[in-house]
Simulated scan of single mutants.
Amino acid sequence: MGKTYLYLLIAVAFEVFGTSCLQASQQLTRLWPSLGIVVGFGGAFFFFMQVLKELPLGITYALWSGLGIILVSISGWVVFGQKLDLAALLGIALIIAGIAVINLFSISSPH
């Protein structure tokens, strides 16, 4: 099961990279960030499919998208100088709480 969660983290890392490249590509007008989009999302979906061999789709997608939202928000703040207001931070805190509830209490998610 440890390998499954490692693959999930790798999928999230690729997705965050690809999403950050979307911003950096300036609507696909810059070559390297545009290629980063393809690599990022290609890697994300490859590892996402590996995770689906062990975890149910709904749980996998909730974890993947939740972690992705958190990390993309951090990336936007650190790399692109985008600000997060109190409502955004509270929403992110709720996402973190949701991920914790799924992993700690859900019988749908193998522990």
Rank of each mutant, 00 (worst) to 15 (best):
W64F: 15
G42Q: 06
C21Q: 07
G81I: 10
E15Q: 15
F105Y: 06
M1L: 10
L94K: 03
M49I: 11
D85P: 07
A88M: 14
F80N: 00
I10W: 00
L22N: 01
C21D: 02
G76I: 04
A87C: 01
I70H: 10
V72G: 04
L8R: 07
G2K: 12
I59Y: 02
V38F: 07
I107T: 14
R30G: 01
G68K: 11
P56A: 12
F17K: 04
T29S: 12
A62K: 07
G40H: 06
Q26V: 06
Q82G: 10
G98L: 01
S25K: 06
F80S: 02
L94A: 14
L86K: 07
L71M: 15
I99N: 01
F14T: 14
Y5M: 08
L22V: 07
V51C: 02
L35F: 10
G43Y: 03
S108C: 03
S109E: 07
G68L: 11
G66T: 08
L8F: 10
L67Y: 11
F105M: 04
A11C: 11
L67E: 10
F105V: 03
V79Y: 00
L104F: 05
G91V: 13
G58W: 03
G58H: 07
Q23D: 04
K3D: 01
A44H: 12
G91M: 13
I59Q: 03
L71W: 13
F45W: 13
V101Q: 04
Q26F: 04
I69Y: 12
Q27R: 12
G40L: 06
T4N: 00
G18C: 05
F105Q: 00
L84Q: 12
A13R: 08
A62C: 11
Q27L: 08
I92C: 13
L31D: 03
E15L: 13
Q23I: 03
V16A: 12
H111P: 10
G58L: 02
A97N: 06
Y5W: 15
D85C: 10
L71E: 05
V51G: 06
W64Q: 08
P56G: 14
A88W: 09
I37N: 10
F47P: 12
F17C: 04
T4Q: 00
F41C: 06
Q50V: 11
M1Q: 01
G18M: 01
L57E: 12
T29D: 04
Q26G: 02
F105D: 01
S109K: 11
I99C: 08
F17D: 01
S73Q: 13
L28D: 03
I37M: 09
M49N: 15
K83G: 14
I92T: 15
T60Q: 03
A87F: 07
A100H: 05
F41N: 02
S108W: 00
